[in-house]
């Protein structure tokens, strides 16, 4: 299949949110969304989703949740800048049945073909003032991000205080198309091979 534009490359991600470790909680579900730059467009697959509500296995060691939740997305882009990031936000129910944020986490979609596994550390924002701490304790509402995608950006992070707890395990299988043709190298082995732009440049 030929793409019309010669400066476009494709990135295919097949993977899964395998599960999580949250030693303190009994029920957890997870929202995921991808954050990517302006040059990137999803050509197939879902940009965001929500897993089932998982309960800890009876026999499993303390802390293990299984989601086994599929990720299948393909992007096209002209520029690796703004490479997609997977933003995870885990929620659980409190004693009154309300959804409470249990952790936010982020990782880049690995910029290299092949299989990769990531153990994403999760963290929740903390109240910054004693008054907010008191009101959140009285009302039973913990601070959370209005937009979880802030964790995928580098600006404005210095104002947040967080407490880290738990991990989410994610597996990625990555296939890229035409990256090498556009002169991009994502592995040391690839650099040893001449890229197609070299041969084109030599022949013209």
């Amino acid at each position: 299949m030929a793409t019309g534009d010669s400066s476009v490359f494709l990135l295919m991600l097949a993977g899964q949110i395998e599960g999580a470790e949250f030693p303190e909680f009994d029920e957890i579900f997870c929202k995921y969304s991808f954050v990517y730059g302006q040059d990137w467009v999803i050509t197939s697959g879902l940009e965001e989703g929500i897993t089932q509500i998982a309960r800890r296995g009876a026999a499993a060691e303390r802390g293990g949740f299984t989601w086994n939740f599929p990720l299948d997305v393909t992007w096209k882009s002209t520029n690796p800048h703004g490479w997609p990031q997977l933003v995870l936000s885990a929620y659980g129910r409190d004693a009154l049945g309300r959804d409470v944020a249990r952790g936010y986490g982020v990782c880049h979609v690995p910029p290299a073909p092949g299989r990769h596994r990531r153990r994403v550390a999760m963290f929740v924002p903390e109240s910054t003032s004693k008054l907010q701490k008191l009101t959140s304790w009285l009302l039973g509402r913990r601070p959370e991000y209005v937009d979880p995608c802030v964790v995928a950006h580098g600006e404005g992070r210095e104002v947040t205080r967080v407490r880290s707890q738990g991990h989410v395990a994610v597996a990625f299988d990555i296939v890229a198309k035409d990256l090498k043709k556009l002169g991009y190298d994502t592995s040391a082995q690839g650099l040893a091979l001449p890229s197609e732009t070299v041969t084109v440049a030599a022949s013209t």
Partner: peptide, 16 residues
């Protein structure tokens, strides 16, 4: 961000 970990001796920054 400023991280105060709950369980581990590992401060999470997750700074892209």
């Amino acid at each position: 961000q400023v991280d105060n970990p709950q369980n581990e001796d590992f401060a999470v920054w997750a700074h892209p």
